[in-house]
Each structure stands twice: as C-alpha cells, then as structure tokens.
C-alpha cells in the first residue's frame, strides 16, 4: 500500500514538473511610458506634407483652369487668399493668368514643425518653374486641429538668395514667435522696419540694418518712374507700407536665426493735377479697375508678402529679404 502511494506521488510530481516546465506565453507585456523624445517629434511626415501640398495645388490648378476663385478659400488662406483671388479675377478679366502664379509641384526642401499646439506652419521650397522662374517659398498653415492646412503665403525667392539651414524633416524645426529675442530684431520689429524701408527707401533710418534686395530696388524704380510722370502733370503720388499685425509666420533655423514670412499691405495713392484723371498704371490695375469711372485720384491697394531672414544678435549680419510677392488686390477711384 505504501509502495502504491509512493508511485502515485512520483507520478503526480512528474506531471507537475512537466506542466511547470512546459512553455507559456510569458508575462503579459506592459505599456511603457512614452519617452520625452516622442513629444519633440515632427508634427508631420514628409508623406503627409506632400499629400497636403498636392491637395492644395490640385485645388489651385482647378481654380486656375476655371479662372474662378470660388472655393479656393478651403485651400488657401491668409494673404495668399487675397493675392490668389485677385490673380484669378484679373485672369478672368484679361483672359490670361500671370505666369508668376505658377507653383511647381516638386520641392527642394521642406521644414516641418515640431510644435504640438496650433496654429502650425510648414515651410516648403519648390523647384524652379518650367520657364525658369525662381523658386517659391510656400507657407502652409493649420489654424486649429479641426481644420486642414491652407496655403497661407507664397514668396518668390530672389535669385541667389541665401536661405538659412533647417533641421531635416525627420527631426523637424521649432516654430518661432513674433517676439523672439536674441535676434538682430524681433521678427515683428524686423517686418515693421522693412515696411519703413519700402516706404522711405534709403532715407529710412533702418536701411543700414537691412541688405539691399531686388524687391526694394524694383519698387524704388517703379516709384521713381511714376513720380516723374506725375510731376509732369503736376500730380502727386504716395505709397504707404504697413505691416499687418499677426500676419506673420516664423520658423527657427539651425543657426539660431528666424525665417520670417509676413504680410505688408501697401496703399498707393496717385492724384493727377490740372484736372486730369488718374488711370491704372498696369494691366493688373486695369483689370481690377475695370469699367469704373476714373477720377483725379486713384487708390490701389497692394498685398505684399515678404520673406526675410533675421539673423541672431551678435552675428554681425544684417536682416536680408530672401523673397517677396506683390499683388494689387483693389483699385479704387476716389
């Protein structure tokens, strides 16, 4: 009997050992806490940026073909909405879309933000156009999580312009603020000073802090030409440039500077003398002016988008504009 019990115990022990030594699935894995690096990851992947950009460009392409700005507000916002609407209206009136409205679908670089909040902005630089126009700097902005990215601004880069360096898209860059310090000027101040330079030219007290650029030069030439004509008619002309508050997008570069894209509105008022009428000065103005009865005074409102690089303080570098866009959006006879 005792022997029998011993055998039974041995069998139970053997079965127990086999069961305990049989493989199991292991311990149920626990979710590890997210690392701090996860919060600093870029908001978007390059694929997402491409999808967003092409969605916008497709919508613009559709509007360009229709020469109708209707519906583009779903894809375009900020100063670019005003510019593109004007361009499409002009194209609708004149029958031709200006070549400068072309935006290449290929890009050379994209800068993706890492900020977790909203609004967020993506800075993308395209290739040159098929007709060798300069590269475009696209700024796409998402105001809140419940909306999609819109094309906020486009600046045609100046030939030979040197853009600062940014982190690769897989790392992402931090967005700047309009009151960033540690720079030659705060971004907001830099835009205001640039507007002053555009208005006053070399006589501006800030001209020594900014490098000369094509945009300033072209505006200065145009103004001089118009001034000569107005003087011949005993007329006057005045153009005022004003930085639009809040219409500014900033991306911090790797060297500590800021790439700033801002909106500067300008109003050009021309008054003819000796009882003459002031007429539009360009095809765009004509198209916008349409059949409006001309008077002695004409007021043209322009939207300017300026991209400038604000270097860090102590670098010894000047603020330099790297690209700009200018479009008349309204022509009025006063």
């Amino acid at each position: 009997m005792r022997k029998h019990i011993g055998k039974m115990a041995a069998c139970i022990l053997a079965i127990g050992l086999c069961t305990s030594m049989a493989a199991c699935e292991g311990q149920v894995p626990q979710v590890s806490a997210p690392t701090s690096s996860a919060s600093a990851s870029p908001d978007l992947t390059q694929a997402q940026e491409k999808r967003i950009r092409l969605r916008i460009l497709d919508a613009l392409e559709k509007a360009n073909k229709a020469k109708d700005p209707k519906g583009i507000d779903e894809y375009v916002g900020g100063p670019q909405l005003q510019i593109r609407t004007s361009e499409l209206n002009i194209a609708k009136a004149s029958g031709d879309l200006d070549n400068k409205t072309t935006i290449p679908r290929q890009i050379t670089q994209t800068v993706i933000p890492t900020d977790s909040g909203w609004p967020r902005s993506i800075f993308t630089i395209t290739t040159t156009t098929a007709d060798q126009q300069s590269k475009r700097l696209l700024v796409m902005t998402q105001d809140v999580a419940g909306t999609n990215y819109k094309l906020w601004g486009v600046a045609r880069l100046f030939q030979g312009a040197q853009l600062p360096k940014f982190a690769v898209p897989t790392i992402g860059s931090e967005m700047g603020d309009s009151s960033d310090t540690g720079l030659v000027f705060t971004p907001e101040s830099a835009v205001s000073h640039y507007a002053d330079i555009l208005q006053n030219g070399t006589s501006s007290k800030y001209s020594s802090d900014f490098t000369s650029d094509y945009f300033q030069q072209d505006l200065s030439k145009l103004e001089q030409t118009v001034q000569q004509g107005m003087e011949a008619n005993n007329g006057t002309q005045k153009q005022t440039f004003t930085a639009v508050p809040g219409a500014i997008k900033i991306m911090r570069s790797s060297d500590g500077g800021d790439l700033v894209v801002a909106q500067i509105d300008s109003v050009w008022t021309r008054t003819a003398g000796e009882g003459r009428e002031s007429l539009p000065a360009s095809d765009d103005e004509k198209a916008l002016f349409g059949n409006t009865k001309a008077t002695s005074t004409i007021k043209v409102t322009y939207v300017n988008v300026v991209a400038m690089y604000v270097p860090p303080a102590g670098s010894g570098a000047k603020v330099s504009a790297v690209g700009a866009e200018r479009q008349a959006i309204k022509v009025e006879a006063l």
């Binding site: 967003i52 998402q142 999580a145 419940g146 999609n148």
Partner: peptide, 11 residues
C-alpha cells in the same frame, strides 16, 4: 466638437 473637416479628410 466643431471640426470643420471630416474624420477621413483631416490632415
């Protein structure tokens, strides 16, 4: 929620 775009259309 007051999202302007649909779930599947969000960027």
């Amino acid at each position: 929620m007051d999202n302007a775009v649909g779930f599947s259309d969000s960027d």
